[in-house]
Each structure stands twice: as structure tokens, then as C-alpha cells.
Amino acid sequence: MNIFRFAGDMTHLASVLVLLLKIHTIKSCAGVSLKTQELYAIVFATRYLDIFTDFISLYNTFMKLVFLGSSFSIVWYMRSHKIVRRSYDKDQDTFRHYFLIVPCLLLAMIINEKFTFREVLWTFSLFLEAVAILPQLVLLQRTRNIDNLTGQYIFLLGAYRAFYIFNWIYRYFTEPHYVHWIPWIAGLLQTLLYGDFFYYYFHSWKNNKKLQLPA
């Protein structure tokens, strides 16, 4: 464990807790893309298949349970909670996220470190995580505005993956033979995808005005 990875995990934890807390507190999910939340639930479900078979550390197992629990809770709130579901804007959240799942699955069948069921799903979860934010960014473009909590959610998500990149650099230089191109490339792509959002988020924060994403 290194400071970058710990900072990344804490930022990631903060992003899901910020979102869960917002939805639980104000009983509204306005501006949040259910598609992105469903994709994240799939990401965690396919990445943590080894949660009961391979024990790495209490921290690792605890965090996996928190991420699984929070992502599925958010999906449950948005789909089934009688009050929250009313604020879900399904007419705007129309990104066909299955168009992301199939290519990621096919790509994971081709590019992976080992062609086993768990390894392919683990690789699939990395590719899917890289693009999972797309429905949320599309929804923001459509609704043109972003309330602070959703902005913080996306900002924290982007920051978590940026911290992980520093973690991979650190591990590359400190651990011999630590080379894993797949998570590195997927993680870099994911961080770049947040790039333009960061640009607009920073400028709106600096000029202290509501975030206006370009159409």
C-alpha cells in the first residue's frame, strides 16, 4: 500500500458516499445518471468475484463490501425507492449503456492477462469502469447544468483514478516486475475522459459561477 493508492481509495470512497448521502438525505437523484450507477454496480460485481475466495487484507475485503453495498444501494434507491425514483429523469438518461458492455466484454476476451473466467471478467470490469461515466457526462450535457453534489461526485471519481495512476508509477519504480499494461491503459483513458469535465469544473469553480458545459 502506498499513499497514492490510499488517497485514491479514500477519494473513491468519498465519491460514492457523497452520492449515496445526497440521495438518502434529500430523497432526490436529480441530475444523476442511473445508467452510470448500473454500470458501476456491474464493474464492482465483476471485479470483486474473488472477495470470498482470495483474502488479501481486512482493508481490501472491507472496502470491496463498501463499494458493492454502496453502488447497489444507489441503484436500488434510483429504481425502487418510492420517492427518489420520481426524481429520476429517464427521458434524458438515454445513453444505451449496453453498447458499452458488449464491446468491453469482447475486448476483455481478446486482451487479458490470462484467459480464465475470473481474469476475463476482471479485465472487463477495468474496461467498463473506464467508460462508465459516459452516460453521466452525456446527461450533464443534456441538462446543461450540474448541481454541486453531482459535480463533486464526478470530480472525486476522476481524482481517484488520477491518484491510481501515481500509484502505478510508484509501484512500477519500487516493485520489480510490477508491470500491468491493461489497468494502466484503461485507467489512463478513464482519467483523460474526465479531462474536459475537470477543465469546465475548475473554470466554473474559479469564476464562482454555475457550471455550464458546452452543448
Binding site: R5, D9, H12, D50, D54, I56, N60, M63, K64, F67, E113, W122, Y164, N167, R171, E175, Y178, H180, I182, P183
Partner: peptide, 10 residues
Amino acid sequence: SPKQSSHDEL
């Protein structure tokens, strides 16, 4: 078998 190092991350 030693846990694959890339799978020890979240």
C-alpha cells in the same frame, strides 16, 4: 500461489 500483484488493488 502468491496473489497476482495487480489484483491486490481495488
